[in-house]
Amino acid sequence: MNLTLKVWRQSGPEDKGRFESHEIEDVSEDSSFLEMMDQLNELLLSKGIEPVSFDHDCREGICGMCSLNINGFAHGPEDSTTTCQLHMRKFEDGDVITIEPFRARAFPVVRDLIVDRSSFDKIIQAGGYISARTGSAPDGNALPIPKADSDKAMDAAACIGCGACVASCKNASAMLFTSAKAGHLNLLPQGKAEKDKRVVDMVSAMDNAGFGNCRNYGECSAACPKDISLDFIAKLNRDHAKAKLKKLFS
């Protein structure tokens, strides 16, 4: 298939950036979206034009490194799919495809389609862990955990930290990410001891990083390649309110 690509180019964080249009021919419908981008880059290289920078690594939908806003959708139009798993058979010959970086104040552009998502790491550093010193653990079966609780924790833990939730939210809120990470640990008995401190610290790190407020639009969950549920946002709000109240009365 032949395509027209309108690609965002930005030489660095200080540059204003602009769209650039490129025609690309003979794209196989079996290639993935990123393989199509590879093909574009080889073409640009052969013309002496600098290739387009984009983030990617595992190319099997799990590392969360790939991003891209494709025709206005984070990770493109297919449901429950990362950009690397989106394939060109979902497009038509002659299509014009608009490719932009994830856009959010807390995700500044590094170059072209690459953004800086280190604000997510800061949220985890604020409390997204259980303090378990290496070697201090009791036997794995010492504490039975009901299967339903463990399964629910796993639903939250499936988050790949890609940032599609932020890129899809018109407030650029990081509540789905933060709630999935906090929810995973708060649902488990091992995570109970630090629960209150965890939610308060993580939410405050999220606010400090410049993410917007959550208004329950739900775009985040719709765009999430791992289908993380909005229920976790509700749980985080509950846990946060409880922690704040406890603090007030203690």
Binding site: A132, A137, G140, N141, P144, L188
Partner: peptide
Amino acid sequence: VNIIDQCVSQGVPFAREYGGLL
């Protein structure tokens, strides 16, 4: 054997049986 214990205590949600054991 220590690895499993360590990971469980970190909150790795390993698959469990209905009785709650790994």
